[in-house]
């Protein structure tokens, strides 16, 4: 399949304050928290960059293995997610290294701020992924399956190696992989998104596949 890796930069997607506060562990907002959030947001806003690189791959699934041609992944859950798809978008997204610097700085000087930067980062990279998926949906005029990342369900982190070989995101958008398959910058994502002609797919509850039932962020 003659596909190429395409790199895109985005403008800042709309910011969802409530979502960021949720990531920070605030179920209800209060003035102090909003003020802290806003001061952190102001400190980092201009330093964020929104970059994505992606490639379209063909996929065949048999319920246990997903064959992408250039590599395959053993995963019942990903197979289920991509059921009925012939094509999949493999992408990597990042909002850059500056949040890591701020998290490191305030992790030492003010952990409450570090926590806010962490939350802003989580909100930002998710918002970037949403913006990218909207873009793809428009461009391809197809429905999208919920995005699926290494570590979700039974998809092992080891698949990151194959993803990195095929996307080369370190060169394109500065996303690197460490020996434990963690991404740096930390506010980065790699994911599969199945393309489907069955129209709009209903997004499933993000948390339903996760086994950590005492998570403070869990949405029921």
């Amino acid at each position: 399949m003659n596909s190429i890796v395409i790199t895109k930069s985005y403008d800042a997607p709309a910011f969802c304050e409530k979502e960021a506060l949720r990531y920070a562990g605030c179920k209800k907002t209060d003035e102090n928290m909003t003020e802290l959030l806003n001061s952190c947001k102001a400190e980092v806003w201009e330093k964020l960059s929104y970059k994505v690189c992606y490639r379209e791959l063909r996929v065949k699934t048999d319920g246990e293995v997903c064959d992408f041609g250039v590599f395959s992944a053993e995963s019942h859950d990903l197979s289920k997610n991509l059921d009925g798809c012939q094509k999949v978008i493999l992408f990597s997204a990042t909002v850059g290294i500056e949040l890591d610097r701020l998290i490191a700085k305030y992790g030492r000087l003010s952990p409450s701020k570090a926590l806010m930067f962490q939350a802003i980062g989580a909100e930002r990279v998710e918002a970037l992924c949403d913006a990218f998926c909207e873009d793809i949906k428009r461009e391809k005029n197809l429905g999208l399956k919920p995005r699926f990342s290494p570590g979700y369900g039974d998809l092992e982190f080891g698949v990151q190696k194959d993803i990195f070989a095929v996307l080369d995101p370190s060169k394109r958008i500065g996303v690197t992989l460490n020996d434990s398959f963690l991404l740096s910058p930390s506010k980065s994502v790699t994911a599969f998104v199945g393309l489907t002609d069955c129209g709009e797919t209903v997004p499933q509850n993000k948390c339903s596949n996760c086994q950590k039932v005492d998570c403070m962020l869990r949405e029921v």
């Binding site: 490191a104 370190s170 992989l177 460490n178 020996d179 963690l182 740096s184």
Partner: peptide
């Protein structure tokens, strides 16, 4: 000589 593809410490593990 191109980059190693890894990020150096402290933000990476190299």
């Amino acid at each position: 000589i191109g980059p190693t593809g890894k990020l150096l410490k402290p933000f990476g593990d190299l």
